[in-house]
């Protein structure tokens, strides 16, 4: 089954370059009767082939964005090609796209309903371009309770599959309660931007990190996850630059908080440490549009093949399955 859909994936997108990469990758496996000498074929069999490893694993990207700096549909169309290029190159068969409102107005996060509605519309537009590959997350601002609820309903009806929020409001703010309850009903993941940096979001504020006040930090996730043990939270990008040891240690005993591995940081041992602290079921593959690091950091880890499968694909697919939205 998975073999079939993989073949479909390759055929459907039909980039000749991908075909070349694949066949390059396979050549290492196939014993060649016409190879020059035993020793060379032996060494080529032993040699680590990174692209072969990349192609070995199915992937769902749990954290990836459309172009965050524009709602212009032409810009987004162009960016969709960048995303497809990544999907092809790294064999990512599903992208959970989002477009949270990251804009600051006079250093204060833009929390207006018209802004989150416009951002959701840009994701909905991109989803239509490659509907088999692109899936979407809606964003909102719980301070605007009614507008947020209406928007969630609209987006779900249009096929979006989970929530993505940013630093307008902390995840454990009471204004989130009705949203979390709604997401419990929908059996969807609440994916929240998060940081662990000294001087940010209430963590050791004697160091000024010059960030908005309401950035969610690991301790906020612990708080809300305890209040709603049946909700599913995705702590964004443990590779996003923050202190991942702090993150994973804080979230250890909150079984309904998952982490995604995305972000521009790919520290050696990050993945191994996260799995050691959180177990192999709560770590989700994600890129946050850092297309090399996302795959490299997992392949370079000491996880076994089954664990890599879980992180690249199965763990997130299991979350999707709760609402019947899984891939396969």
């Amino acid at each position: 089954m998975s073999g079939l859909s993989r073949r479909k994936f390759v055929c459907g997108t039909a980039f000749s370059a991908a075909g070349i990469v694949m066949s390059d990758g396979f050549s290492g496996f196939i014993p060649r009767s016409n190879s020059g000498s035993n020793s060379s074929s032996e060494s080529s069999e032993k040699k680590y082939n990174i692209m072969q490893e990349v192609m070995k694993y199915r992937k769902i990207d749990s954290h990836v964005h459309v172009n965050l700096s524009s709602t212009n549909s032409e810009v987004q169309k162009k960016f969709a090609e960048v995303l497809m290029n990544y999907s092809e190159r790294m064999k990512v068969e599903k992208l959970m796209l989002s477009n949270p409102v990251t804009r600051l107005i006079n250093s204060i996060p833009d929390g207006r309903p018209e802004s989150f509605i416009a951002n959701n519309n840009s994701v909905l537009g991109v989803m239509k371009i490659y509907p088999k590959i692109f899936s979407g997350s809606f964003t909102f601002n719980p301070v605007h309770a009614k507008e947020s609820m209406d928007e969630i309903k609209r987006c779900v009806d249009l096929g979006m599959v989970n929530a993505k929020a940013y630093y307008q409001t902390k995840i454990n703010d009471p204004s989130y309660y009705p949203i979390v309850e709604k997401m419990i009903d929908l059996k969807m993941v609440i994916h929240m931007h998060a940081e662990a940096q000294i001087g940010v979001g209430g963590y050791r504020m004697k160091y000024n990190g010059y960030k908005p006040l309401n950035v969610s930090i690991p301790d906020d996730f612990v708080d809300i996850a305890k209040r709603y043990p049946e909700a599913i939270f995705q702590y964004a990008h443990i590779g996003g630059g923050g202190d991942w040891e702090y993150m994973c240690k804080t979230l250890k005993n909150s079984p309904n908080v998952y982490v995604d591995t995305s972000g521009s940081n790919n520290e050696e041992n990050l993945i191994d440490f996260a799995v050691k602290q959180l177990g192999e079921n709560r770590v989700l593959f994600g890129s946050d549009n850092c297309y090399y690091q996302c795959v490299g950091k997992i392949l370079a880890s000491n996880l076994n093949e089954s664990q890599m499968k879980k992180i690249f694909f199965e763990n997130y697919n299991n979350l999707l399955r709760k609402g019947g939205r899984n891939v396969d």
């Binding site: 940081n265 790919n266 520290e267 050696e268 795959v295 490299g296 370079a300």
Partner: peptide, 8 residues
């Protein structure tokens, strides 16, 4: 940093 991203 991890051992493979630079190679990837």
């Amino acid at each position: 940093l991890d051992y493979l991203t630079g190679l990837l």
